[in-house]
């Protein structure tokens, strides 16, 4: 009973928000074209999922996002370790390059990538990977850089091998930073995914929203937006959960 009370209290603003949405939408204050009622949106959502339509697009979108995201993880984390300050020369050479690269606007890059790869799945996954890589690299590097000096001194006094130092000291210390980078990346992946799909695709959630727009199906647009937001929130929560499970020492 007490637990329910706490959960209710915690989520009160969210519940109020949806109630408010419902009330305002149903009143004559707002053009129903602009803001459909929350209930209608949910019904449309249910219908679309039931027919399998939305599910297909969701899965396609997820595939793309995850593809880019995982690629970014695989490349980004090792790269981040590289940039963490242990390999001075490499870091000094690469740092300015990475600094600039991370600021390249993905939309511009997208145009360039399309020139080479056409408008297929590869192009989309590549650009998503590009955007996702940088938060991971920078946060991992920061995590490695900020390992407590005292711990490192202790490790050296134990005369640990380089690999041991890495595995036992650096990795755990940097873990939190790394996860921050991962979470930011996950957010970006979704963000860019929709952008890319809106701009040049014939499937996926972004395309679905565009399609709904052309058919003036405002409820569907909102339904799509809800799905996207939920996916984002879930991914974020999921990563936080994994982080909690892995980082048990803090």
């Amino acid at each position: 009973m007490y637990r329910t009370k706490i959960i209710l209290q915690h989520n009160l603003p969210i519940i109020l928000f949806f109630l408010l949405w419902e009330v305002v939408a149903n009143s004559s204050l707002v053009n129903p074209m602009l803001l459909p009622a929350f209930s209608k949106v949910i019904m449309t959502l249910g219908g679309l999922f039931y027919s399998g339509e939305l599910l297909t697009h969701t899965l396609i979108s997820l595939e793309r996002a995850l593809g880019g995201f995982v690629a970014a993880l695989v490349i980004g984390i090792p790269l981040g370790f590289l940039m963490g300050g242990w390999f001075r020369t490499t870091q000094t050479v690469l740092a300015p390059l990475f600094d600039i690269s991370s600021q390249v606007n993905p939309f511009i890059l997208f145009h360039i990538i399309i020139l080479f790869l056409g408008i297929g799945e590869t192009a989309k996954i590549t650009i998503i990977a590009w955007v996702c890589i940088w938060p991971i690299v920078f946060n991992t590097a920061a995590g490695v850089r900020n390992v407590d000096e005292i711990l490192l001194k202790e490790a050296r006094s134990f005369d640990l091998q380089r690999w041991s130092i890495f595995y036992k000291i650096i990795l755990p210390s940097a873990a939190r930073s790394i996860f921050t980078g991962i979470r930011i990346s996950a957010g970006y992946s979704f963000f860019l995914l929709i952008a890319v799909e809106v701009m040049g695709a014939d499937s996926g959630l972004g395309w679905f929203i565009l399609y709904s727009q052309e058919n003036y199906n405002v409820e569907a647009i909102f339904a799509g937006a809800v799905v996207i937001a939920l996916l984002g929130v879930t991914m974020d929560a999921g990563i936080k959960y994994i982080e909690k499970k892995i980082i048990i020492w803090q």
Binding site: I194, I209, S212
Partner: peptide, 11 residues
């Protein structure tokens, strides 16, 4: 914050 601006942009 997770509401993607691109999803609502077409609208």
């Amino acid at each position: 914050s997770h509401v993607n601006p691109f999803s609502l942009a077409p609208l």
